[in-house]
Simulated assay, not measured.
Amino acid sequence: MTDLKGRTALVTGSTSGIGRATAIALAARGAHVLVVGRDEQRARDAVTEIEGSGGSATFRLTSLVDLESARELVEWAIDAGNGHVDILINNAGVALMGPSNAATEADFDETFTVNVKVPFFLVASLAPAMAERGWGSIVNVSTMVASFGQAGMALYGASRAALELLTKAWAAEYGGRGVRVNAVAPGPTRTRMMEAIPDEMVNHLAALAPAARVAEPEELASAIVFLATDDASFVHGVTLAVDGGRVAT
């Protein structure tokens, strides 16, 4: 399929896991994908895989840890996208686990900077130009624990809950000018971030859902690509639960 031919898609945190699977899937639909991550070899490998399948991609190494890094990414992305970014996937994030009384101010600041502040300013910088062109799509990657309390995940869940509210606010702000903003809320998924969570917690969370298993990154990528394309042309401001049915229990 080439329905995204001529579109540029910026996918943060796209050198592994859900981000990488999403970058590959968007490229397969014809988009020129901007791969963003911290590891050069993984970035090169992602681009090589995309190009090996006939797609188009470019990468940039960045940590996205503050406003300056977000603004530098925007400048690079516009240049690398021949003057435009049409799709933004806010996938990069950190998940610092543990009891609330063990969290430091630095933990708090890092979580909300990477998970909320950086996506906020990426959208603030890129969405107005999308609106001027009359087409754009933004998908924010949240988590199922933004919707219910989970011990040890207070910071992570709260930061993603903020992102889900921003999703609704941005949909209201930009939807009337052709920019759709949505989110996905993954359940347990086989990613590098998940490796930091004890197996017993992952298995417990997975067992609570009807699917009773851990998802593969490609399953999340399919949902993200759906929301990013005109397949979801009348979908604005939603958080799509891709959690094996945990939302139903």
Rank of each mutant, 00 (worst) to 15 (best):
W135V: 07
N101E: 15
A95M: 14
V181E: 09
G93I: 13
T249D: 05
A209C: 10
L88T: 11
A158Q: 08
A162N: 04
V141R: 06
G176E: 11
D79M: 04
S142Q: 12
G134S: 05
R213V: 04
F112Y: 14
A183W: 07
E49H: 09
G6D: 13
V114D: 00
F59P: 03
D45E: 14
S159M: 12
Y156G: 09
R44P: 00
P188Y: 02
S14G: 03
E105P: 02
A207M: 10
L240I: 09
W76T: 00
E68M: 03
L64K: 01
Q41H: 13
L205Y: 07
T48C: 03
S53F: 09
P99R: 10
G54S: 12
G98W: 12
N140Q: 09
V116A: 14
R7S: 05
G98R: 10
I89R: 11
T62M: 00
L64S: 03
L126H: 10
N115S: 04
A154I: 14
S69G: 03
D86S: 11
A70Y: 03
G178I: 07
L26I: 07
V94G: 01
T143D: 12
V235S: 11
D199M: 05
V116T: 15
G81P: 11
G81S: 12
A21I: 13
H204N: 06
R213H: 11
D107F: 02
E49W: 01
V202M: 04
A223D: 08
I89C: 03
I138N: 08
N90P: 08
A102Q: 13
S14T: 04
A9P: 13
I87M: 10
I224Y: 13
G37K: 01
G152Y: 10
L10V: 04
G37Y: 00
G54D: 12
S125Q: 06
A161H: 10
T2S: 14
E173D: 14
V242R: 04
L26V: 06
A146E: 13
M193Y: 01
E164L: 07
A77R: 12
R20Y: 10
M1H: 12
I24N: 01
S69F: 04
A228K: 04
V33K: 07
I224C: 06
K5P: 00
A241G: 00
E49I: 06
A129F: 00
D109N: 13
L73V: 06
I50K: 08
V47I: 10
D199T: 14
M1K: 09
A211R: 07
V235Y: 02
T167W: 02
V247L: 03
A131Y: 15
A232M: 13
E219S: 09
L122P: 07
A185D: 09
I224W: 08
K117R: 15
R29I: 01
Q41E: 13
T62N: 05
T48P: 00
A106R: 13
G176M: 07
T111H: 08
G136F: 13
D230V: 12
N101P: 00
I197P: 02
N82W: 00
